[in-house]
Amino acid sequence: MTLLQKRRIALGSLFFLAGLCFSSWAARIPDIQVKFDLSESQLGTLLLGLPVGSLLALPLAGWAVYRFGSKIVAVVSTVSYIVFLPLIGFSESMWMLVPVVFVFGMTGNLMNISLNTQALALEDHYGRNILGSFHGLWSLAGFTGAGIGATMIFFEILPKFHYLSISAMVLVVLLVSYGFLLEEHDRGGGGGLVLRKPDDLLLRIGGIAFLGMLCEGCMFDWSGVYFKKVVEIDPGLIALGYVSFMGAMALGRFISDRLTNKFGKILILRSSGILMFCGLMLSVLFPVPVLATTGFLMVGFGVASIIPIAYSTAGRSKLYSPGVALAIISTISFFGFLIGPPLIGFIADLLSLKASFTLVAFTGLGIAILASVRTAVFFPSQKVTK
């Protein structure tokens, strides 16, 4: 096994464990609600702390990666992440829980930016797209974390001990992986806090990432509701839409690198956008179990390549360092992830849930259009014929 392959395995392990930490936290949210006797609105307020912390961490992440290097930030943020995860379980009051969840969100995004910067540096050594496989590992960890969480709940293991076991696992892998992380060299210009307007390249990539994350957020939060109220599926199969979407997205990320290397970023983005549109419209026009599930599978495959390609392209900005460029794209796309689910609910109340999903379908067309207009400016390193 070559050194490059060892580096890829080490970094992939950290991507997987980052996803495992997040999914482990999510799997025990109902237990947290019971422990603190939280109402639905109180739980919603608590959960808001994580995305707020994540959002505030983005400009800091770009600066920190530029200033100290992604290797140091990855190690520090990973250690912080696995310290604050069990602290959630050990919290005995809301006064402790709220700031812990907030910092957990911050350290999670510091880890996200630094690991993706590492992946871009490793991608340079490979000379081809490999970022999608790392995001696939993060998605795969979601299923693993849900399974471990269900097992812990079955054996009535408290969240704090569940979280401690996950943190211990991550610490061991980090100690083994540390020596294989890259001391990447800066490839961009600007490295300060992200306070200035992004250039045309990043705005266009950001637009694609925004639409992709808007659709992704809606699918995460509303798949079950759609299958329950519109598809009217058997109660035992309500999760089918979510599972089919998540499974297709995870699988799609593992194969996206090969497709991108073969056909080019532009064609893959166009195809992904069209696949998202067609999948959602199929589910809206024919809301029966087989066709709706097929539609959700199509959406999962469509969404799979959006963020990996957006990150890979942004990381090669000539005006910004990779860490800052990723922070800019993450900030723009994060707003899509936050706006999407409430937008679905608002339109569903005003019109119908089918109308909401119809609107989300047009995010796919938006992606296809943004990937097609002024491609020479948008992807200067890609041939338009691809």
Rank of each mutant, 00 (worst) to 15 (best):
V290T: 15
P86S: 09
R67V: 02
A310L: 10
R253W: 04
K71I: 00
E156C: 09
I369S: 15
T260G: 11
C218D: 06
D200W: 09
E216L: 01
L43W: 00
T385N: 08
Q118N: 06
G190Y: 11
D186M: 11
G19A: 03
L267A: 03
A64F: 12
L158N: 10
A325Y: 02
G212I: 04
N116K: 07
P198A: 03
L97H: 02
G340R: 00
V243T: 15
S330T: 13
P86C: 08
T313I: 06
I274V: 15
G273T: 14
R7N: 12
R128E: 03
L164Q: 10
F68S: 07
M213K: 00
S91I: 01
K383P: 04
L14W: 01
H125I: 05
S283M: 14
T385I: 07
F220D: 09
H125G: 00
I329D: 00
L181Q: 04
A27I: 09
I339Q: 02
G295F: 10
V76N: 08
T144C: 13
A376S: 13
E156L: 11
V360N: 07
E92R: 12
T358P: 10
P51L: 05
Y66W: 05
G192L: 03
F143M: 10
I347N: 04
D200P: 10
H135F: 03
K383G: 11
V34S: 13
A61H: 01
